[in-house]
Amino acid sequence: MESPTPADARISIIGAGPGGLTCARVLQRHGIAVSVYDRDAETNSRNQGGSLDLHEEDGQLALREAGLLEEFFALARLEGQEMRQMDRSGRVLDHHLPDEGETARPEIDRGQLRDLLLRSLTAGTVQWGRTLESVSGPADGPRTLTFTDGSAVETDLVIGADGAFSRVRAAVSPATPRYTGVSFLEAWFDDMEHTHPELSHLVGKGSAHIADGERGLFAQRNSGGHMRVYIMQRVPVDWIAALGLRPEDTKGIRGHLLSEYAAWSPQMLRMIADNDGAYVDRPLFALPVPHTWEHSRSVALLGDAAHLMPPLGVGVNLAMLDAAELALALVGSSTIGGAVDTYEKSMLPRSARMAQMLEGGADHLLSAPGPDENELFGRSRP
């Protein structure tokens, strides 16, 4: 089958996260029609997660191509670039305070970024409540997308922006994410200035990282007076069940954590014990390094679907850069197949280099800060 032109093609994006929405926005800016399918029931059906730092060399570049950079800076928190490294006693080892007007890596809440991108799209672009079950059809296309509600859609290009456990990935690659051996437990804190003033002072306006070699904490300020703390441990993936606990057993989990972190100072333990609400278990997975696949002119992957890595501040930035480059390749190519080939020649080497650099990076999150720590993390955010 001859590969269709992008202007005439049926293009489907799976996943309405930052990557999928950025790709859709850039395509629409250039007059190319696209449909986005997402499993969420509607826009606000779940919490979108914590804060993101968008880098000027990738995430911000993608927003510039989307025509949304000015609106981004109207929402971004420049003060969120502050970063503290501490030891388990609370002693500050390193402190990055952003210069006045510094814009290298400002913070924005995930939900705010998603809403910004959604507002920029033509009404009806995103179809909610559409959970992909499988991708079938020949490599040259067209492909058939089958959803769990029994419906199906035929498409000339399916773009997998559906995250770590992508259903689109299976159409071109047998690779599956592997547990890194490190798990995050997310804790939420509300009304920081009034309810948690000591923690507000300790963390500052941005983020704080503390580790002792076996365990760690990463505290991250969000907008609206909120904060999230990621309790980082080297544990089995099913560690909560192995302790005879359930994820909703906040009291039991808290007691275990306080025992594990008993050598840490009382002020640090407040990041574990003073949270508002339940904990959220977030084990870390990564794809094999490097992750490559045989080219298919009817399937493209971006973001975590293509190159899931440890959460060292690069994930959303790479996803948005992937998205912008794929969209621009479609704009500038005469066929869908040629566009996917152009995109992969750039994306695959870049993601392989980054994945090799960050391989084992989950363990570094637990390492006591050393002289090269900030260079590794790039002052980025898990």
Rank of each mutant, 00 (worst) to 15 (best):
H201F: 11
A211G: 02
G225R: 10
A219T: 02
S207A: 12
E248V: 05
W264E: 00
A305C: 08
N222W: 11
L199Y: 10
H295W: 08
L308I: 03
H194P: 08
H201W: 10
V280L: 14
H295N: 12
Y261N: 04
V237N: 04
K205F: 10
L245V: 03
K205R: 14
M232R: 06
I272V: 07
H295E: 05
P290R: 11
Q220S: 14
P290S: 06
S223H: 15
V299D: 04
S207K: 15
Q220H: 10
P197Q: 09
P290D: 14
F285E: 01
V299Y: 03
R270G: 03
M309G: 08
R270I: 00
G216K: 02
E294H: 14
P310N: 11
D281R: 12
A242W: 00
G277M: 13
L199R: 11
L243E: 15
P311M: 10
T250D: 15
A208D: 04
T250Q: 15
L217D: 00
L312M: 14
S259M: 08
I210G: 00
G277C: 07
G204K: 13
A242L: 09
G303T: 04
L284I: 10
N275V: 12
S298Y: 13
H194F: 13
K251T: 15
D274S: 12
A263E: 15
P266A: 10
M271Q: 06
L308N: 04
L269G: 06
A278T: 10
H209S: 02
L308W: 06
H226C: 07
V235M: 01
T250R: 15
L217W: 07
M271N: 03
H307P: 14
M268D: 02
P236D: 14
L312H: 13
R234K: 14
R228D: 00
I272K: 03
D249A: 08
A278N: 15
G213T: 00
V299G: 03
L258Y: 09
Q233V: 03
R215G: 00
R270T: 01
A273E: 12
T195C: 12
Y230D: 02
S298C: 10
A241E: 09
R228M: 06
M232Y: 01
G225V: 07
V229W: 11
G252T: 03
L257P: 01
V299W: 06
G213D: 00
I231S: 02
D281A: 09
L302Y: 07
L245K: 09
P311A: 12
S207T: 13
R221Y: 06
L199C: 03
L269S: 05
R246F: 04
H201C: 13
E198C: 09
P247D: 05
N222G: 12
L245H: 12
G204I: 08
G213N: 06
S298N: 13
Y230R: 09
G224E: 13
R221Q: 04
P236Q: 07
L243D: 07
A242M: 08
P247R: 06
S296E: 06
G224D: 13
G244D: 05
A278I: 05
G277F: 09
I272G: 00
V229Y: 10
S259V: 06
R234D: 00
R246A: 07
N222K: 11
V203P: 01
E198I: 04
L302Q: 07
V203W: 11
A241Y: 05
L217K: 04
P288H: 06
